Amino acid sequence: MTVLVKPETAHSAAPRPDIAPEEWAVRVKLAAAYQLAALYGWTDHIYTHFSVRVPGAEEHFLINPFGLLFDEVTASTLVKIDIDGTIIDDPLGLGINQAGYVIHSAIHRARPDLKAVLHTHTRHGAAVSAQKEGLLPLSQHALAYYGRVAYHTYEGVVLDLDEQERLIANLGERNVLILRNHGLLAGGVSVEHAFRLLHGLENACAIQIAAQAGGNDGLLFAPQAAIDKVRRQATVFADGEHPGITRHWSAAIRQLERRGSDYKS
């Protein structure tokens, strides 16, 4: 029987000596993304999952151990698995969420350009995913995503490998996916890039639900000219190295570190 180790006793005080510096760097970033999600209220208890590819020739990626809350995830506790689901490193012995493997391995296999994949079940994201029209052009936040979002029809809890083909077909070449009746997903060329896309999408969904609280009859959609203009201005979608991504991420990390986070351990 697997015993859940208390996070405060499981974390190492220094980088694990058995992990290459390049891998450790992405571990730290992914752990920060988990703890930022907890800080921003994006969590669903121990469910949902963020992942990042491990630098190197092998197709390995990192994901959360199944049982830790997001604010308990640190660089040293992440699970490393290969693209076929074989666990390479599982420090706490907790294994992984099967739905996390099905979703993330599908994207990492089909879209090697997306190094990081972040998936949430937030109240606002799930609410928008349950609307026939999906994300609406109601706010500046939403306009950056309008026409850039892919949709995947709900088939049940994502445990079956045969759903991977349909999920990938729906995602296509886009970076952002709304899983109908389920939640949100964003992929990027780095953890920072995926986090920037998810952060904006979460805000857009929250604004949409707030606007709809007054009734759909009074909603004011942005004019088409504005939609087209903001689409051109939202360069972070096309440019994963845009300096605004680093600026956004650095500010989030400063906010996290003011709380004395142990994500680097």
Rank of each mutant, 00 (worst) to 15 (best):
F195W: 15
F221E: 06
E202P: 05
S250R: 14
Q208E: 11
G240T: 09
A169I: 02
F221Y: 10
L184W: 03
Q233W: 02
V230T: 07
I207G: 03
V236G: 01
D160M: 00
D160C: 00
A213M: 10
G244C: 05
F195A: 14
R254S: 15
R247P: 00
A194C: 12
E192Y: 06
L171A: 13
Q164G: 05
R259G: 09
S250W: 05
A234Y: 03
I168A: 06
I253Q: 11
G188A: 14
I245S: 11
W249Y: 15
T246V: 07
Q212D: 05
L197S: 10
A251I: 04
I253W: 12
H242M: 06
D239R: 02
R259S: 13
Q255M: 15
R231K: 08
I178R: 05
L177H: 13
A252R: 15
A204R: 04
E202I: 09
F237C: 02
R247S: 09
N203M: 09
D262K: 12
Q233V: 00
I168D: 06
G260A: 12
E192M: 14
E241C: 05
V176E: 13
E165T: 11
A251K: 12
Q212V: 01
A211F: 08
S261N: 14
D228V: 00
G215I: 10
R259L: 11
T246R: 14
T246S: 15
V189W: 05
E257C: 11
E192H: 11
I253T: 13
A204T: 03
L184C: 08
Q255G: 15
I227A: 01
L256N: 11
R254K: 15
R258W: 01
G187S: 10
N175V: 07
L219M: 01
C205E: 09
D239K: 04
S190R: 13
Q233G: 07
A226L: 11
A169K: 13
I253N: 13
V176Q: 12
A226T: 04
L201G: 09
D228W: 00
F195Q: 06
G200D: 06
F237E: 04
G240W: 10
L179E: 00
E202L: 07
R247I: 01
L161Y: 01
A194E: 03
L197E: 09
N181M: 00
E165R: 14
V236C: 05
E165G: 10
A234C: 03
T235E: 13
I178V: 15
L159M: 06
A204H: 04
E202G: 01
L177R: 12
G260I: 08
F237R: 03
A225K: 01
D262H: 13
N175Q: 14
Q255S: 15
I227K: 02
F237M: 03
H248T: 07
